Computed example of a mutant assay.
Amino acid sequence: MFGIISALGAASSWTYACYLWRKQTKYLSAAQINITKNIIAFIIFFPIILTFDFQSSFKDIFILFLSGIIGISVGDTFYIISLKKIGTRRTLTVEALSPIIATFLGSVFMEEILPFKVWVGVFIVSISLVGVAFQKTINTQYIISNKDRKEGFIFAIFSVLCAVIAAALSRSVLTQSDLNPFQTTEIRLLGSVFALLPFLGKNLTYSIRMIPLKIKLSLLFATFLGTNIGILLQQNVFKLLPIGLGWTLLSTSPVMALFLSGMEGEEVTWKTYLLTATTILGVGIVFI
C-alpha cells in the first residue's frame, strides 16, 4: 500500500512542479532550469552523502550515477523543452507510452511476471492516455504552432525513454543492495549535477540574478516538490513495486494535470474527461 501511495504522491508533486517549471521557461532555458533545480535539490539532501560507504558500494553507486545522468540530466532537460513547446498536460500525457515500455522491460530484463489483469489495466491506461494526448483543446493563453507541437512530442517521447531506462537501473540497485531511497535519490542527483556542470556558466548566474524574487521562490518550491520529494517517492515506488506496475501509477499525471488546465488557459472537452475516467478504470483493474 505504501508503494501505491508513494506513486500517486510522486505523480501529483511532479505534475504541479511541471506547471511551475513551464512558467519559468520565460526567464530561463530548459538546461538552465534543469541544472539549477538539480543543484538545489542536491544541496537540500547533501547530509545524506555522509552515510555512504563509497568503496563497498562502488558498483551500485556507479549504476545510480548513470541513472541520474540518463533520467535527470538528459531526460528532464528534454521534458522541460517539451513543457515549453506543448504545455503541461500534453507533455505529461506522452507518458502514456511509459507503462507499456516499463512493463515490457521489467518482464524481459528483470523477470518480473505480472498477472494478466495487470497487463489489461496497463493497456487500458495507455490507450486512454494516448486518447487524451490527441484531444484538441482551446488554449486562450498559448498559441502552439505545428512545428512546436511536433518537436514537443518528440522531446517528450525521448524524455520518457530516458526516464524508463533510468527507472530500470534504479530498481535493479534498490532490490539488490542495502541502499535506501534517500541515498539512491542523492546519488542520482549527484550524477545529474556532474553531467550538467559543463553548462554552468556566467550566463546562468546572471539570468538567475535578473529574474524576479517571486520566480526565484517559485523555482525553489518547484524543485523541492518535484525533484526532492518527487524523486524520493519515486525511488520508494521502484523499491516496493514491479517497474511496470509502479510506472503505470506514476503515469497518472495527465489526470492530475486536468486540474491545472484552466490555469494554462485550456478548455478541456467532455471526451477528455471520459478518457480520464477510463484511465482511472484501468488503474482500478490493476488492484481488483
Score class of each variant (00 low, 15 high):
residue 5 I to Y: 15
residue 112 E to Q: 11
residue 74 V to G: 03
residue 130 V to A: 15
residue 44 I to G: 09
residue 249 L to N: 04
residue 270 W to E: 10
residue 272 T to H: 07
residue 176 Q to G: 03
residue 100 I to R: 00
residue 242 P to S: 00
residue 147 K to M: 04
residue 179 L to Q: 04
residue 215 I to C: 04
residue 209 R to Y: 10
residue 230 G to A: 07
residue 124 I to S: 03
residue 7 A to E: 07
residue 69 I to W: 09
residue 176 Q to L: 14
residue 8 L to P: 11
residue 66 L to H: 05
residue 54 F to W: 11
residue 173 V to R: 12
residue 167 A to M: 12
residue 270 W to G: 10
residue 270 W to T: 15
residue 247 W to A: 00
residue 227 T to K: 03
residue 126 S to A: 12
residue 189 L to D: 00
residue 93 T to I: 01
residue 46 F to D: 09
residue 52 F to V: 00
residue 258 L to K: 01
residue 4 I to D: 03
residue 161 L to V: 15
residue 90 R to I: 01
residue 79 Y to G: 02
residue 199 F to I: 09
residue 178 D to F: 14
residue 53 D to R: 12
residue 233 L to T: 05
residue 204 L to N: 14
residue 239 K to V: 01
residue 91 T to H: 06
residue 43 I to V: 08
residue 182 F to E: 13
residue 45 F to Q: 04
residue 250 L to R: 00
residue 41 A to Q: 09
residue 231 I to L: 10
residue 24 Q to M: 14
residue 232 L to V: 10
residue 237 V to N: 13
residue 57 S to H: 12
residue 206 Y to L: 10
residue 161 L to P: 07
residue 102 A to V: 14
residue 37 K to S: 12
residue 205 T to S: 11
residue 201 G to V: 12
residue 242 P to F: 00
residue 119 W to A: 00
residue 98 S to V: 07
residue 204 L to I: 15
residue 64 L to A: 05
residue 230 G to T: 07
residue 2 F to W: 09
residue 142 Y to N: 06
residue 102 A to G: 15
residue 231 I to A: 08
residue 50 L to M: 13
residue 225 L to D: 02
residue 234 Q to D: 10
residue 133 A to R: 07
residue 194 F to M: 09
residue 151 E to I: 02
residue 205 T to A: 08
residue 135 Q to N: 14
residue 255 V to I: 15
residue 44 I to F: 13
residue 236 N to G: 09
residue 98 S to L: 05
residue 166 A to C: 06
residue 212 P to W: 07
residue 170 S to A: 09
residue 20 L to K: 11
residue 272 T to N: 11
residue 179 L to S: 07
residue 274 L to H: 00
residue 153 F to H: 09
residue 268 V to P: 01
residue 275 L to H: 02
residue 232 L to Q: 02
residue 20 L to S: 13
residue 49 I to E: 07
residue 38 N to E: 07
residue 235 Q to A: 04
residue 203 N to G: 08
residue 6 S to L: 15
residue 71 G to M: 10
residue 118 V to I: 06
residue 214 K to I: 03
residue 269 T to H: 10
residue 260 L to C: 10
residue 233 L to F: 10
residue 249 L to G: 07
residue 259 F to W: 06
residue 264 E to H: 09
residue 232 L to N: 01
residue 195 A to C: 06
residue 228 N to V: 11
residue 159 S to P: 07
residue 147 K to P: 00
residue 256 M to Q: 11
residue 201 G to K: 08
residue 3 G to V: 12
residue 97 L to K: 00
residue 193 V to N: 03
residue 226 G to S: 04
residue 228 N to T: 15
residue 246 G to S: 05
residue 138 I to A: 03
residue 176 Q to R: 15
residue 17 A to K: 04
residue 130 V to K: 01
residue 190 L to V: 02
residue 4 I to H: 13
residue 115 P to K: 01
residue 9 G to R: 06
residue 7 A to V: 11
residue 118 V to E: 01
residue 227 T to Q: 13
residue 259 F to D: 06
residue 92 L to E: 05
